[in-house]
Simulated scan of single mutants.
Amino acid sequence: MNDVVIRPLRFTADVQAMRQFLETLGLAPRVEGEQGSWVDMVAGDGMVALHDAASSSTGGKHGDTRLSFEAEDIDRLRDRLVAAGHEDATTWDEAYGRVLSVTAPGGLVIWIDERSEDLYGYKLHRTPPDPRLTVAPHLSGATPDWTPFLEFLGVRQPVALDQAGDFAVRLDFRTTETLTGVAARLQAAGYSAELDGTTIHITDPDGQPVRVHG
């Protein structure tokens, strides 16, 4: 099983503020850069990556969220993609590890990082995340062929597709914790959080909307 984990990538002007927000939700840091410009946050299922927007080499702007992934074996995944007709699937080495890129539906190029035990100078954390929380991003402007594409990659985490508008990624989560408990914890920490039926509506420290679904 070549487990592929979805990992929305948020570019932010304040990595620490976003990290504290995600920790309040129940995520925990796994790997972070020594200078604090990057941190991978894990949920019970799925991940969110935070990257300092000012040091982005790919043009990431404050508040932007991009779609990225992590996989156990990107060589095997590349071979499967090429065999299925994704001839542009390519792997290469970056300073932090190995990466696969491939064109997804709609012409969007996505990156899939290979999971590695070599920390490349990064700091490892072992704090467990809340097992009740799942990363479940919302994709706007996503055509229906995203569903079979994500299934082919092997992504288990739920992804909501909305065909309206331009392509965009919103940080959404699902939890088996009571939503009243989640909302109370967020409000006590000073975050704008409103419970509306089976969904909590939040504005995160970057000023972006976040949803937590029951």
Results as ranks from 00 to 15, higher is better:
residue 1 M to V: 13
residue 4 V to R: 05
residue 6 I to S: 05
residue 7 R to Q: 15
residue 11 F to D: 04
residue 15 V to M: 03
residue 16 Q to K: 14
residue 18 M to K: 04
residue 19 R to Y: 03
residue 20 Q to N: 12
residue 23 E to K: 12
residue 25 L to Y: 10
residue 29 P to A: 00
residue 30 R to M: 12
residue 34 E to F: 13
residue 36 G to W: 06
residue 37 S to F: 15
residue 38 W to Y: 15
residue 40 D to Y: 00
residue 43 A to F: 09
residue 43 A to R: 08
residue 45 D to G: 15
residue 48 V to H: 06
residue 48 V to P: 01
residue 52 D to A: 10
residue 54 A to P: 00
residue 55 S to R: 05
residue 56 S to W: 01
residue 59 G to F: 01
residue 61 K to I: 01
residue 64 D to A: 02
residue 64 D to M: 06
residue 66 R to C: 02
residue 68 S to D: 08
residue 69 F to E: 05
residue 70 E to K: 12
residue 72 E to C: 11
residue 72 E to Q: 15
residue 82 V to W: 13
residue 85 G to D: 08
residue 85 G to H: 09
residue 86 H to D: 11
residue 88 D to K: 04
residue 90 T to G: 10
residue 91 T to K: 03
residue 93 D to W: 07
residue 95 A to N: 10
residue 95 A to P: 02
residue 95 A to E: 13
residue 100 L to T: 04
residue 100 L to P: 05
residue 102 V to P: 09
residue 104 A to N: 08
residue 110 I to F: 06
residue 114 E to M: 14
residue 114 E to D: 10
residue 115 R to F: 08
residue 115 R to I: 13
residue 118 D to N: 13
residue 124 L to C: 11
residue 124 L to F: 15
residue 127 T to V: 12
residue 127 T to Q: 13
residue 128 P to K: 12
residue 129 P to S: 10
residue 130 D to P: 05
residue 135 V to G: 07
residue 136 A to R: 07
residue 138 H to F: 08
residue 139 L to S: 07
residue 139 L to V: 06
residue 140 S to W: 10
residue 141 G to C: 03
residue 142 A to L: 00
residue 145 D to Y: 05
residue 146 W to P: 10
residue 150 L to S: 07
residue 152 F to I: 04
residue 154 G to T: 09
residue 158 P to R: 01
residue 160 A to T: 09
residue 163 Q to T: 00
residue 166 D to K: 14
residue 166 D to E: 14
residue 167 F to M: 12
residue 168 A to I: 06
residue 170 R to G: 10
residue 170 R to V: 08
residue 170 R to W: 09
residue 171 L to M: 07
residue 172 D to H: 14
residue 177 E to K: 00
residue 183 A to C: 00
residue 184 A to I: 08
residue 187 Q to I: 11
residue 189 A to M: 02
residue 189 A to Q: 03
residue 190 G to D: 13
residue 193 A to E: 07
residue 195 L to F: 05
residue 196 D to F: 00
residue 197 G to C: 02
residue 197 G to K: 02
residue 198 T to S: 15
residue 200 I to P: 11
residue 205 P to T: 06
residue 207 G to D: 06
residue 212 V to Y: 02
residue 212 V to L: 08
residue 213 H to M: 11
